[in-house]
Amino acid sequence: MPNSELMPIGVFAQRSGLTSSALRFYADSGLLPPAEVDPVSGYRHYGADQVARATAVRRLREIAMPLAEVGTVLDAEAGEAARLVDEHVAGVAGDAAAARQKAAVIKSVLGGDRPGLLIAALKGPVLADAVDHVLTATATATATAYGPGTAVLTGVHVEAGHEAITLTATDRFRLSTRSLVPARTAEQTWVGTVDGDDLRAAVTEIRHSALVRIEAVPHGIRLRMGQREDRHCRLLYEEFPDHRLMLASLGEVTTRATVAKDLLLRALEEHPGECIALHISGHGVDVRSPNDEHPGISLLATVTGEALQIRFETTTLYPAVSTAIGPDVMLDLRGHDRPVTIRSADRGDLTTLAMPVKAAYSS
Rank of each mutant, 00 (worst) to 15 (best):
N291L: 13
E238I: 03
E270V: 12
I206P: 09
A257V: 00
G282T: 06
R256V: 12
G196Y: 04
I221S: 06
R266G: 14
E269P: 00
A202I: 02
G251A: 02
Q188F: 11
L265F: 02
P290T: 06
V285I: 08
A277M: 12
L223A: 06
D230R: 11
Q227G: 15
Q188P: 03
I214W: 03
D198G: 15
E229M: 10
S298W: 05
S249K: 11
D195M: 06
A277P: 01
T254L: 10
E293M: 05
E187D: 15
E238D: 15
A260H: 12
I297S: 12
R266P: 06
A260I: 11
V194T: 09
M225C: 11
W190F: 14
D292S: 09
P272R: 01
E274M: 11
G196N: 02
L247Y: 02
P295H: 03
L300S: 15
I206Q: 05
E239A: 14
I276A: 11
M225S: 10
R207I: 08
G196F: 02
I206L: 09
P218V: 05
V287I: 01
V287W: 00
A202F: 04
A260L: 12
H279F: 10
V285L: 10
S298Q: 12
V217M: 05
F240L: 00
E252V: 13
C233H: 03
S209W: 03
Q227I: 10
G220P: 05
R222D: 09
H271Q: 09
E238N: 05
D195W: 02
H294L: 14
I297V: 13
W190N: 10
P272A: 06
I280L: 05
Y237M: 11
A210S: 13
H232I: 12
T255M: 09
P241Q: 04
E269Y: 08
D242Y: 02
D230T: 13
G226Y: 05
L236Q: 09
G220K: 00
A267L: 00
V194A: 07
G226A: 09
G282W: 03
C275R: 13
I214A: 07
A201S: 14
V212N: 05
I280P: 00
G220R: 00
H279Y: 06
H232S: 07
H219M: 10
P218R: 01
L211G: 07
L263E: 15
H283R: 15
A201M: 07
